[in-house]
Amino acid sequence: MSTAPAHAHPVHKDYQGAKFGMWLFLFTEILLFGGLFLLYSIYRSMYPIDFHNGGKHLNVIIGVANTVILLTSSLTVAVAITAIQKGNKKLTLACLGVTIVFALMFLANKYIEWSAEIRHGIYPNGPELLKMPNGEKIFYGLYYSMTGLHGLHVLAGIIALLITLDFVRRDKITGTDFNKLENVGLYWHLVDVIWIFLLPLLYLAA
């Protein structure tokens, strides 16, 4: 353990650069999901009735519940950042913990939802899916790829949040050096924004 005062060996921290780097990564994420949104809007314009019928089979209650869960988890991350800026470590830890619980609830809902659909034979090459018209097959293809890719992002977010929680606990993230927390927060908010678009596109399409 070093006993040298901090000013003797100043650690160079490029705070603006680190944050800008995170935003650049988010831009690639926006364009990644943007490609899927583009596919969705084109196929919806080609098969409006099939997309309408496809949306009917989705569970709106689970979709809306997951929206409320993600919006609230975004709030807890944002509160965690304000809390660390104010030097309130306890509140930061609590908020990050709550965010992780919300993220797990989101994935649990996703599991319930997907298992119900798979039980009904709606999955790639599933018996029910093959009976559907082409537009509805495309709708479900997009539904599984978009929510699946988003679900992977939630999973990655949980891992990032757990690491951040541990950093805060061990004072690697503090009131004067919280860039890591802010960047994980930015990522988590983007995951929330993507879901904000997925709700009306998929669940409210009917």
């Binding site: 709030l75 991350v77 944002a78 802010e182 927060g185 908010h189 929330d192 924004v193 904000i196 678009f197």
Partner: peptide, 12 residues
């Protein structure tokens, strides 16, 4: 509008 709120306030 919702995405904008998240971008402007939550994402600072």
């Amino acid at each position: 509008l919702k995405a904008g709120l998240v971008f402007f306030y939550f994402m600072h």
